[in-house]
Amino acid sequence: MSKKNNENNGFFVRWWRQISYACRNVYNDIRQHLLTSILTIIVIAISIMLPTICYLLWKNVNEAAKQWYPTPNLTVYLNQDIDQTQTDSLIADIVKYPEVEKIKYLSQHDTLEEFREWSGFSEALDLLEENPLPAIIIVMPKDEAKKSVILAELKKKIQTLDKVNDVRLDDSWFARLTALTGMVETIAWTISLLMIIAVSLVIGNSIRLMIFARRQTILVMQLIGATEGFILRPFLYSGMFNGVIGALLALCMSQIFILRVDAIILNVSSVFGTVFKLVGLTFEESIFIILLSGILGWLSAWIAVRKYLQMTEQRS
């Protein structure tokens, strides 16, 4: 860039001055209408907070699902008359399936011991002459195979093997949980969509009020030779400012909400003897929400002002 451009009227210098003028404009406007601005920002913050909390709920239910509930296993019940070599070959067959991560073999003796420990019927069991419990193989599927359809296929395949009495797929919890997180996800999406519309409308409306209050200024600016960009700029900044500050406030409120709920959950989980910690928003997620909200503010302001300018153009 030549030295002359750097001095008084270089493009970037002028541009920077115009931007700072627009920023001062926004600042003055907020100071003049402090209460209105605060109310607008609070409405935006609440509108953003609701989907944020929904998202957190979904995220935590997912987290809880991973932490608390056993992965869906297939339990293979063997015939009573199976001998050791047959068992070994059966295990070898099952391990060969590509869906299988690992297996756990419990002999008749093991199952009896486990049952004794669990049920507390130890004396009663001693009365039995013969061990009534079958040996079992617990098949743990690989992560990518943890889908109801694949597991059902696997179940069918194992069922046909020799000396297998029965195969149970213990996925009722898994299915319920999948349905539950799916439902929370759908609700979160719906609410998010509605709230995005709400945020746009709120910002658009506040910008419309601002336009109304400054229509004389806009007219004079147009007469004096201001470009459309110059006229738009303070409104765009104002919309973006509302969006960003609203999002920051929403993040603060969500954090407070998380802390409050976390305290309650800590209480409950200590009664149940487990530890579950709520997951908050990550840094990236927070930045995403702030950016999204800022862009929304910018866009809705742009639409509102453009519409107004087009309207006045047609009238004149």
Binding site: N8, R14, Q18, V220, M221, I224, G225, F230
Partner: peptide, 13 residues
């Protein structure tokens, strides 16, 4: 000052 602000003149000018 408005016409000059639109042009992006410096405050001194």
């Amino acid at each position: 000052a408005i016409p000059l602000i639109i042009l992006g003149k410096s405050m001194e000018e």
